[in-house]
């Protein structure tokens, strides 16, 4: 099993889709970091130089705050459009590396070569794992890169609620981490996005069989994401904790969506993962290796 998993991982990391996804993510990160540095950090530095000029009557008197790492991080920086852009295309980035690999191999009958050498079960699980990891990497690596770049010029200090630098409220998910341990918050959320990146890739992989249209299958996670965000939430706002469209973004829609909490998020994630895994493995376990 280890051999086939290693083989799938090697193929996944070497795929053109992985390079393209990481490049696209890195480009967004670099542009966003440049924007933050210029419009957030340097602006704040300019204010800092004026501290000596403050007088009692000055509205800015005593009102300076050091910028924190999350203000420059792609996940929480909401003044520019990069955060919105990144989380809108996150499902596409996740699918790009390996989401259609299984479909392509099955259609070309390359999968037959693998199945007769290691068995169907091992092949399916190895493919599922590699696809999941590929989607996770494509989703999470840009966030990690952004965190690293932010750390190079912004300190990892707690966010002061008086500063108006915050994007979350106390009732937001993991608010304690956000305010007290910003790096932990960023890493925890990156982990969550890693999982969902993996699930998006696996949804495409699973759905491609029935959709029989590669573009349609690749767009399915984006479609689900948009339906959740623009449709279901507006019709049924009480479902906020169960809609991944709302809690994928670390700024949690600027803390404005009710009360997203960990329990329902975990439940939704587990159920979604179980459903996708079950459908993929179950539907392919006894499937004839034939070109559809």
């Amino acid at each position: 099993m280890a051999t086939i998993i290693a083989m799938e991982f090697k193929k996944m990391m070497r795929s053109r889709g992985m390079r393209a996804a990481l490049l696209a993510g890195a480009l967004i990160v670099v542009l966003q970091t440049g924007w933050s540095f210029r419009h957030i950090y340097l602006e704040n530095e300019q204010s800092y130089r004026k501290i000596a000029e403050w007088t009692y009557g000055d509205p800015g008197y005593g009102r300076w705050f050091e910028c924190t790492i999350l203000e420059g991080w792609l996940g929480c920086e909401s003044f520019s459009s990069y955060n919105m852009l990144y989380f809108l295309i996150l499902p596409i980035l996740a699918v790009m590396p390996y989401g259609l690999s299984f479909y392509n191999e099955w259609q070309s009958t390359y999968s037959a070569q693998i199945i007769v050498r290691c068995g169907r079960g091992k092949y399916l699980w190895a493919k599922y794992l590699a696809t999941f990891i590929s989607g996770g990497i494509a989703a999470a690596l840009p966030l990690l890169l952004s965190l690293l770049l932010s750390a190079c010029y912004l300190p990892a200090i707690p966010t002061d609620p008086v500063s108006l630098q915050t994007v979350l409220m106390d009732r937001s998910m993991w608010a304690f981490l956000y305010f007290e341990h910003p790096v932990c918050y960023a890493l925890a959320y990156t982990g969550l996005d890693f999982v969902y990146g993996g699930l998006f890739a696996c949804i495409t992989m699973t759905a491609a069989r029935w959709l029989r249209n590669r573009f349609g299958a690749a767009m399915l996670p984006v479609l689900l994401h948009c339906i959740g965000y623009y449709c279901i939430y507006n019709l049924l706002p009480e479902t906020e904790s169960y809609l991944f469209s709302l809690y994928l973004d670390p700024n949690q829609s600027w803390g404005m969506v009710g009360e997203i909490s960990t329990g329902p998020v975990v439940l939704t994630t587990v159920l979604l993962a179980a459903a996708v895994t079950g459908i993929f493995i179950g539907s392919n376990r006894k499937r004839d290796v034939l070109t559809d």
Binding site: S15, Y110, T291
Partner: peptide, 23 residues
């Protein structure tokens, strides 16, 4: 069986090497 299918971005040797590892 039918048209031989391999990974398009790998050389012939690399393709066989991958299959050999599994085998």
């Amino acid at each position: 069986i039918e048209n031989p299918a391999f990974l398009p971005d790998y050389t012939g040797y690399e393709n066989l090497k991958l299959l050999a590892k599994v085998q």
